[in-house]
């Protein structure tokens, strides 16, 4: 919160009025913006607090006609749900870790060093983003079947990592390139090797980029669907996205539990975000997305 405000400058005569009003107007605007992004999930929350039949009752009613308070207890007391949650946490954290570890050296090196194939590499990275996993899932299955890794966390962690690598490399590449070479040179004069320079100086300078890449990868891995669906056979190894389909089938609908479970599934992401959000703003550094 200690960020210097960068509000565009206003004409002088309007400034005084605005100064008095600003502390009141801005939070209200903030509330409106928050509502604009939250309202569907408020609908979702209300749907979790009514019996399933009430969700699809005609005519619609915004508030539940009949409140049901047990949904979250049902969901959180369900062993299947807890297993799915566990899988999602493990997979998302591990995928994010792999991406960060793999992307940093690649992004740094391509940002700082000219070498044969540099442009080709960056292009390859971009192109990997263009394949829809839906179209590749058969090949992915074949690969992990050949490697005897079907139904293992390893398989979906590696897949998530590979498909999210491009974003991380791109974002970090931009941040690394925007850090002036002089800083690095100073470090090198002090005798730091390239790796040490990267770890000690560049990483802290590129922190907003790192945070962006982390959030991005975590969310993408958290919400991955089609690959996990295909690779994870055991019910307790399915991630949440795949597992919660069970709540609503063609023959039986538990909308309340589906939405209750979905709300729970959002929480870890928001918590993670809340924990690292302040770094997104980059207190001392100023990296540019490039």
């Amino acid at each position: 919160m200690s960020v210097v405000t960068k509000a565009p400058v206003r004409p002088r005569d309007a400034t005084v009025g605005w100064r008095t009003l600003r502390p009141y107007v801005m939070p209200v605007l903030g509330l409106l913006v928050a509502f604009a992004f939250l309202w569907p999930y408020l609908v979702m929350l209300l749907n979790a607090f009514r019996p399933s039949a009430d969700v699809v009752q005609t005519p619609a009613s915004i508030l539940p006609r009949e409140w049901k308070w047990t949904t979250f207890a049902e969901v959180l007391g369900d062993e299947r749900f807890l297993a799915w949650l566990r899988t999602s946490v493990v997979v998302a954290l591990a995928s994010t870790a792999v991406v960060v570890v793999v992307a940093i050296p690649a992004a740094y090196f391509t940002a700082r060093v000219r070498f044969p194939g540099r442009v080709a590499f960056l292009f390859l990275v971009l192109v990997t983003q263009m394949f829809s996993p839906t179209s590749l899932v058969v090949g992915i299955y074949r690969e992990f079947f050949t490697l005897n890794l079907v139904n293992t966390y390893m398989a979906i962690i590696l897949t998530n990592a590979a498909f999210n690598l491009a974003f991380a490399i791109w974002i970090l590449h931009g941040f690394f390139s925007s850090i002036p070479k002089e800083i690095e040179e100073a470090a090198e004069l002090d005798g730091c090797g390239r790796l040490a320079t990267l770890l000690r100086i560049m990483l802290s300078l590129a922190r907003p980029g790192l945070v962006t890449a982390t959030i991005f990868t975590f969310i993408a891995a958290w919400n991955e669907y089609v690959v996990a669906l295909t690779l994870m056979l055991d019910d307790d190894r399915k991630p949440l996205t795949v597992g919660i389909n069970s709540y609503v089938t063609g023959y039986e609908q538990n909308w309340d539990q589906l939405f209750g479970a979905s709300i729970v599934a959002i929480v870890p992401v928001v918590v993670l975000f809340a924990l690292i959000e302040k770094h997104l703003v980059g207190g001392l550094t100023s990296g540019a997305v490039k």
């Binding site: 999930y41 959002i266 928001v270």
Partner: peptide, 11 residues
């Protein structure tokens, strides 16, 4: 935090 929610929710 609010703005991130549509992103955090599964598509």
């Amino acid at each position: 935090w609010a703005v991130i929610v549509p992103w955090a929710a599964s598509l």
